[in-house]
């Protein structure tokens, strides 16, 4: 498994098995923050960043747990360590670069307990990726998430002025659009083969 090429891992995580549209991870922010294009882009960047950080953490924790033979602590360790690391990073950014914090910072607490982040940690462990592969996987997943979010925001901005029946408005409509996007993304299948 560890023989997979980096390019194929990236394609797989970002397009073929898009976290949002094929694995349904991170649906909450996808439905919540996809109203405005500008917000969606920044949210996507923040998710990419957190994914890289948590991928690094998860790799370290996994190696540690294997070394001390305590696989049953995996889930608790992942969620606790990832949440605290993101908090630390948030404080660090706030101190070092207020401009960056204003752009990304407000999203960080929202993302910490997002299923896409934990899902990434679990998937990379299940797949037995090396450190470099894990980081590429995280980058691909983040890019895929951003792509889905931005596409969705673009469509929703257009739809804002369209006349739709009352009952369809809101989440129901967003889910329908997501379904169509997901169908479109199926066209990417086979790229990694």
């Amino acid at each position: 498994m560890s023989g997979e090429s980096l390019w194929s891992i990236f394609l797989n995580a970002s397009l073929v098995n898009n976290f949002v549209l094929a694995y349904f991870l991170g649906i909450c922010p996808f439905l919540g923050v996809s109203g405005k294009l500008a917000t969606a882009t920044r949210m996507g960047a923040a998710v990419c960043f957190v994914m890289l950080v948590s991928s690094l953490c998860a790799y370290g924790i996994h190696r540690l747990l294997v070394a001390i033979e305590a696989p049953y602590l995996q889930l608790i360790a992942y969620i606790v360590v990832i949440a605290s690391t993101v908090q630390l990073v948030e404080m660090f950014i706030r101190k070092m670069s207020p401009a960056l914090f204003r752009a990304l910072g407000i999203f960080l607490p929202l993302i910490t307990t997002n299923c896409a982040i934990l899902g990434l940690a679990l998937f990379q462990t299940n797949k037995g990726y090396t450190l470099v592969q894990s980081l590429v996987y995280a980058l691909g997943a983040g890019a895929g998430f951003t792509l889905a979010l931005v596409l969705m925001a673009g469509i929703r901005e257009k739809l804002e002025l369209a006349a739709v029946p009352d009952a369809v408005q809101g989440t129901a409509l967003t889910l329908m659009i997501a379904g169509i996007l997901s169908l479109a993304f199926m066209g990417f299948a086979g790229l990694g083969a």
Binding site: L21, A22, Y23, F24, D166, A167, V168, Q169, G170, T171, A172, L173, T174, L175, M176, A178, G179, I180, S182, L183, M186
Partner: peptide, 20 residues
């Protein structure tokens, strides 16, 4: 298509539509 990922979005969308 219903057991593919997009089917999940469609079905949930339709259920929410029904409740709305």
């Amino acid at each position: 298509v219903m057991i593919l990922p997009s089917g999940g979005f469609f079905t949930l969308g339709l259920w929410l539509l029904f409740f709305n």
